[in-house]
Simulated scan of single mutants.
Amino acid sequence: MSKRFDEAMWLMRRHDPQKAEDGFALLRPHAAEHVGELIEAFRGEEDRGLRCWLLELIGYARSSEALPLLVEYLDHEDESLASWAESGLRELDTKEARTALYRHHANNAHN
């Protein structure tokens, strides 16, 4: 893991809301450089709020590497995670991402 990623994650875990926001802001413009680390951190994270932030950052990365994870969480029971997954697929804006969104909306229209 890179120094920037480690520092951002350390900050995002702080109880001080400003430090947590600073960590998020540190990582946001560099999300694409850290998509693999973000996915790994997301998979290992238990804190719901941090998982939402990580999934948001994964979406900002606009990386095809994130497609399987975003599709996986599109129908998640936690509406916040599902919403960030949908947002990430919209950001990705590839044929595969659009197909996943179309299928998701078509399936939910019938439920």
Rank of each mutant, 00 (worst) to 15 (best):
S2M: 06
S2F: 07
K3I: 09
K3Y: 05
R4I: 06
D6T: 08
D6V: 04
E7Q: 09
A8S: 10
M9E: 01
M9I: 11
W10D: 03
W10P: 03
W10Q: 11
R13G: 12
R13M: 09
H15N: 11
H15Y: 08
H15T: 09
D16E: 02
D16R: 04
P17E: 09
P17T: 05
Q18C: 13
Q18I: 12
K19T: 13
K19A: 15
K19C: 12
K19E: 15
A20V: 03
D22Q: 14
D22A: 12
D22R: 14
D22T: 10
G23D: 07
A25T: 13
A25P: 15
A25N: 15
L26W: 10
L26P: 07
L27P: 03
L27S: 00
R28S: 01
R28E: 05
P29Q: 06
P29M: 08
H30P: 09
H30V: 05
E33P: 08
V35C: 08
V35E: 04
V35H: 03
V35T: 03
E37Q: 07
L38Y: 10
E40S: 11
A41G: 05
A41R: 09
F42T: 03
F42Y: 11
R43Y: 00
R43N: 00
G44T: 00
G44F: 02
G44H: 01
G44D: 01
G49D: 10
L50W: 06
L50D: 01
L50F: 07
L50Y: 05
R51Q: 07
C52G: 04
W53K: 08
W53T: 04
L54V: 10
L54F: 11
E56A: 02
E56Q: 09
E56R: 09
L57F: 07
I58S: 02
G59A: 10
G59Q: 05
G59V: 05
Y60T: 01
Y60F: 06
A61P: 03
R62H: 14
S63I: 12
A66Y: 02
A66R: 01
L67S: 08
L67V: 08
L67Y: 09
L67I: 09
P68F: 12
L69G: 02
L69P: 06
L69H: 01
L69I: 04
L70Y: 01
L70F: 02
V71M: 08
E72T: 12
Y73F: 14
L74S: 10
L74T: 04
L74I: 10
D75M: 02
D75Y: 05
H76T: 00
H76S: 01
H76N: 03
E77N: 14
E77W: 14
D78H: 04
D78Q: 05
E79L: 12
S80W: 08
L81R: 00
A82M: 09
A82D: 04
A82L: 10
W84Q: 04
W84K: 03
W84H: 02
W84V: 00
A85N: 02
A85M: 02
E86D: 10
E86S: 06
S87M: 11
S87P: 11
G88K: 13
L89P: 12
R90E: 03
R90L: 04
R90I: 03
L92A: 09
L92W: 05
D93P: 14
D93S: 15
K95R: 12
K95D: 13
T99D: 06
A100D: 00
Y102D: 11
Y102F: 13
H105D: 06
A106N: 02
A109E: 08
A109Q: 13
H110S: 15
H110M: 14
N111K: 14
